[in-house]
Amino acid sequence: MDMVEDVLAGRVRGIARMMSRAEAGGGDCRAALAEIYRHTGRAHVVGLTGVPGSGKSTLARVLARAIRASGRKVGIVAVDPSSPFSGGAILGDRVRMTGLSGDPGVFIRSMATHGAVGGLARASLDSVDILDAAGFDIVVVETVGVGQDEVDILQAAHTVVVLSAPGLGDDIQAIKAGLLEIADIHAVSKCDRADANRTLIDLKGMLTLGVAGGDGWQVPVLPTSAENDEGIGDLLAAIDAHRAHLEDSGGIALRRRRIAETRILGIAEDIVRTRFAGRHDGRLAGLLDRVMAREVDPYAAAMDMLAASRED
């Protein structure tokens, strides 16, 4: 199991190769990943999300620099969407992540969603495990743009940072309603722009309308500007404060449990989905004919599929 040794020793090639194996999802890597999992639990996992173009990758870059300046190692897992048609992907997050190269304390990995929701969570979380076991103190998971897809991955983070960009107008109201529930920290990007104040005021206003969460954490709204390198230190301080709050309040244990629960369920869903796709093409086609002929309803057909997958 020298690949596990390479990961635990923090060797770049070993880490990178292990991530590829995990992403491929073959059975041969499960034993190695199981061994790696035993060495996890030290890293603080920060989820970074926001609408497309809000500046997640740029923020990840300046945040990584701040983390390095504080003497800690940082891993970044940057997720971009796969094409629903070809399955291919353009992973462009590295375009914004300049100036981090050549530093062994920074590891950046780009990943595609590969369609499956469960697949996204599984492979990305495997990569988080690998970075954790390799000794990275903070792992930043940068999601694709906001939607339903990345709820899984946000439930995988100890601290969730939601990034909003100024100038999104009326649409922001709808977006914020969904985000308020998952944000531990609100950050506003591009605060060198004049209209950023409006966004800050809107977010703060929205937060005062709701009942504060029962865990005693006050969700901060922080202005940032990667352009002028402003607010980044405050953001890192807020992340550290949230971590300290979780540890003091015992909330960290609840989060870890929730993360494990999400992963177990996600992996189980993934296995069922793979079984359906791989082994039941003929059965599905037959059921489809019968559903089309109104002989059975879709619910009964789904139950039939489930029963069949239990048999193998």
């Binding site: 094409s83 048609f85 291919g88 992907a89 353009i90 590295r94 780009s110």
Partner: peptide, 11 residues
């Protein structure tokens, strides 16, 4: 990408 590959672009 359209051939189904994952393409990382550095800029």
């Amino acid at each position: 990408r359209d051939a189904g590959m994952d393409v990382i672009y550095t800029g």
